[in-house]
Nucleic acid binder design. Structure first.
Lengths: 215, 215
DNA sequence: TTGTGTGAAACCGTTCACAGCG
DNA sequence: CGCTGTGAACGGTTTCACACAA
């Protein structure tokens, strides 16, 4: 949700949130090039969308007005999107599973979003436990409930094999997790109120293969 | 597309293709448990969807009729979905970038779909070149065009850092790639006719974080 | 001119609700 | 009964098209 000038709340759809995240990345790249203004049609091209969509998103969800005949202010817009997407306080994220995928995720997310970073990693493999991997100490899985509760963590990334995913999810939900990012190729079941975002590599690849075949 | 009894073609939407891939996985799990029949409402629960949606998908896209008061035949349906999703001939996939993420993808996809597997891997890092990683030999990037053309590869997975992604994509498109699965946190630009599926970990995490905050 | 803001229309995709069949 | 198949209704997004401002 986002608070408007008049205090009313607007529910923002999942799709819109995804696009805002994308716009922000494009804006950061533009800012790095020293750009100050950007019109909707350029933002649209860079994000592979349409100008009308961009304007709608920025007006309705972000409530950041553009300047007529000049477009949007890059820095201002970047900030405004942050106000919608980011929590006011920094949030910790738990990572469960420190195999190849887990390590890739750790590396990937390192230093990207300071307000949203992995602050605890868990694995059952005794080879990994208590070693520091990509800057984060790996803890045994049975410390998970206590650590998650103590550190007030509400978001978790599941990067364990399919067979262990549901079990891990149950553990996380009991520890008070409210958002899950699931990489395991299983459809996790969780009670209402827990948001699940699935990243399904097989599905994505099959999709790419299917549409690559079309004439 | 899928060929119907009457020979007419139905264009299947991206979302539907994603769900079919998901149904197939659920069906495989059911088959492994020895289940023979499954009603739409159960498939829906397992896939986190609705019964009506499942029935529509199976009827319109897969054209696999269920048995009234018994549901669908697990094996038959699994096969029918394969007829829609899979290419008749096995397809090779190229992987570019054999870092942590690339290795995770190699491990993840190994032995999952025999008709759709990684048959060539590339990286610029001399540490990796010519070594066999997760069963696949890693080749230098400058062999990419020739290898992709020779082996008639049309699908590629981009797992390189953001800065190199567009360049690699251009190389792939020139080599005749028609479907891209992109893990790099950049919006790749490609000509129409090249299908791009983005897997954007940062976006997914921000989404999970945002919706985890909602009351 | 250029480019925003925005009702209104068009376009999906999803769900409802029920006829029909085993 | 139980469960499928499906026209019809619904609801959410996306796009159109144009008034308006700099």
């Amino acid at each position: 949700m986002s608070r408007r000038d008049d205090g009313a709340m607007t529910r923002i759809s999942e799709k819109t949130i995804g696009r805002l995240s994308l716009y922000r990345r494009v804006l950061s790249a533009l800012a790095a090039e020293g750009r100050r203004q950007v019109p909707s049609h350029e933002l649209a091209t860079l994000a592979r969308g349409t100008p009308a969509q961009v304007r709608r998103d920025l007006m309705e969800a972000v409530r950041c007005p553009g300047r007529r005949s000049q477009g949007y202010d890059v820095a201002e817009l970047n900030k405004a999107i942050g106000d919608v997407l980011d929590s006011p306080r920094a949030e910790g994220v738990a990572l469960i599973g420190v195999g190849n995928l887990g390590r890739a995720i750790l590396a990937y997310l390192a230093g990207r979003r300071p307000k949203l970073k992995i602050t605890a990693a868990f694995d059952n493999d005794l080879e990994k436990v208590n070693r520091i991997i990509k800057g984060t100490r790996c803890r045994p899985l049975d410390e998970l409930p206590q650590t998650v509760l103590e550190r007030d963590i509400h978001i978790a990334i599941i990067a364990v094999p399919a067979g262990a995913a549901q079990e891990v999810a149950d553990l996380l939900v009991r520890a008070g997790i409210r958002g899950l990012l699931n990489f395991a190729p299983v459809r996790i079941q969780a009670p209402a109120g827990v948001f699940i975002e699935d990243i399904d590599i097989t599905m994505a690849l099959e999709k790419a293969a299917f549409f690559a075949r079309l004439p």
